[in-house]
Every structure is written in C-alpha cells, then in structure tokens.
Design a protein around this nucleic acid. Sequence first.
DNA 1: TTAAAATGTAAAGCTTACTTGACACATGGG
DNA 2: CCCATGTGTCAAGTAAGCTTTACATTTTAA
Lengths: 62, 62
Amino acid sequence: MNNHLKALRAERGWSQQQLGDRLDVSRQTVNAIEREKYDPSLPLAFDIAKVFGLQIEDIFKP
Amino acid sequence: MNNHLKALRAERGWSQQQLGDRLDVSRQTVNAIEREKYDPSLPLAFDIAKVFGLQIEDIFKP
DNA sequence: TTAAAATGTAAAGCTTACTTGACACATGGG
DNA sequence: CCCATGTGTCAAGTAAGCTTTACATTTTAA
C-alpha cells in the first residue's frame, strides 16, 4: 500500500510525534506507516484522512 | 465502524461465500465484517470498495 | 560546533484481523 | 418430507497492527 503521508505531514510542518498526538497513536506508528512498514487499520486510516481533510483514497493507493 | 455491506451484497444477489471468493477471504470474514464483529484491514477495505464500485467512505462510516 | 529535536530501528508484548474446521439452525425447492 | 444452500457462531491458530522502552543516527538551530 502506497501513501504520501510524509509529504502531507511536511506541508503542515508537523513532526511525527505531533501527528501521532493528533491521531492518538505513537510516533513509531506514524513512522512505520510513512515508511510503509505496514498499513494503518481502517479506523486509523479514517482518522488520518480526517486530520488532513482528505479522502482515504487521496492518501493511500492499493 | 458502521457499514452496509449486507445491503450491498443483497443488491448484487451474492452469498457471503460468493463475496468472500471475489475478495479472496473466507465467508466467515465476510460474515464478521457484515455483523461488525471487526473492521476489515485497509487493503481489504479497498478490495471491498472496488468490488462494489464505490469509495471506502461510501461503505464504511467511522 | 555543540546540544536539542527529530527520525530510524528493534524487541517484547498485547490486541485485532483473518484462517480452517466444525456444528447448529433456518429456509426454500424438489 | 428431505436435502441443499445460506447463515451464525465457536475454537484454535497465524499474521498484522500498535504499544512501550530503549538506543543510534540525522537534522536543525543557536
């Protein structure tokens, strides 16, 4: 699963920790998803989309 | 996580087994998701959306 | 150039997603 | 009535997502 989370986060000027706080997950989780070590759960994907004001499909590509 | 998978499946006239086959998951997995025992993984959510020609957000509500 | 902040990574542990196999029950068609 | 198909559910097992702790490395700013 492809994503451009890192770019979106950079646009906002947020650290992984800051994004993790907004998403209520650890910074390691943010790091792992950015680096595509694994995919977020569906609920977390919804939260990510919400934080960036986008659709899941805009952020993640199968 | 809310979903109307059952209604969508019924519209197509598919059994849980047939949908499972299309999604390459077991019928028990389809059943569990329909009955909201758990949420699909993000990749499976993408597959489900694709099978029904919809967006993930059209099918699942946080 | 040094110190602080940010990032990468790994291990151990818990929870959730998914599997197979099995059994019960409901329903509708012969 | 019988049988096939569909659905609900449970148990045991594997895999994936996420946590905390910890430490190393990279980047940034003063």
